[in-house]
Design a protein around this nucleic acid. Structure first.
Lengths: 150, 150
DNA sequence: GGGGATAATATCGCGCACGATATACTATCA
DNA sequence: TGATAGTATATCGTGCGCGATATTATCCCC
């Protein structure tokens, strides 16, 4: 009790770190993505589509942990940029399928240098990064579980 | 080259993780902070002030990696909530010093249960969390360095 | 001590991020 | 079949987060 009052920032240490690291990645990607005309979240969405075209809005959201109120405007901006097309699924008209345009596919090659730049900037090996990623994912899963059964 | 084209999401793995983990923490804190009338970034700012009252806007920004265009509106909202006071420094009138009001200090006791809830939700020991935090900080410092000398 | 450089904060515009709610479609079951 | 429940996406309002720029104060050098 007294301990918590003495160190109210104890829990904050880990979230400070995540918070700051997340923003730092944002600042790292931004100048790399600016010539492509993409923001960082838009790049993440395009990466999901490059990994498998023709996904539903909900599938993209599940991969990135985003809801439709975030994705819909973002996808509309990508559509206005001519990188993706959005169309209601013929089978189930509630669903919206997002597909890459030829311009969207072309952009993939232009973005090919980005991963190398980022990897260099981390100053870590792919093994170290993979290990760290696994630990962060473990933490995230634990937190999501706690949020679900609170 | 071909490798990058085959795996454009390779670099994305670590940033996906950070991105999702950061948002997961946001969703964990939100219901805990809602009774206090604080958002997650506002809680981080209050934590900084609870650790040491009377900080300058720039000092808070340095601690959290935020610039004035983010902090100024946030601090004004905290001021409107009656939790902090903002005043120009007598010595150097360019600077704005942020101090806790009695209500802001009182809130600290009400927030005392938050760290424990969060720690429990992580399912990790403080040692494990500390180790993870250190690794994340190492990554962040490397990235910030790369951004600085690009 | 006056003028340009520098520094700290503020303002503005845009793009997330999300909760609450609305809309449109599908499934179910009486 | 027709009401009802459930599902997928969209809309709206609020609060970050930041780059570009403005404003005001201090510093420094002639």
């Amino acid at each position: 009790m007294t301990k918590n009052l003495d160190k109210p920032e104890l829990d904050a240490f880990i979230c400070f770190s995540l918070y700051a690291a997340s923003h730092a990645f944002n600042r790292l990607y931004q100048p790399l993505l600016e010539p492509l005309g993409l923001t960082y979240p838009q790049y993440l969405v395009m990466s999901v589509l490059w990994a498998g075209d023709g996904k539903l809005v909900g599938e993209i959201g599940a991969r990135l942990g985003l809801v439709s109120s975030t994705l819909t405007p973002l996808l509309k901006r990508l559509e206005n940029s001519g990188l993706v097309a959005r169309s209601r699924d013929r089978e189930d008209e509630r669903q919206v399928r997002v597909t890459l345009t030829p311009e969207g596919r072309t952009l993939r090659a232009q973005a090919a240098t980005v991963p190398g730049c980022v990897l260099t900037a981390t100053g870590m090996t792919t093994d170290e990064l993979g290990d760290l990623r696994a630990k962060i994912d473990t933490l995230r899963v634990a937190i999501e579980g706690a949020v679900a059964n609170r």
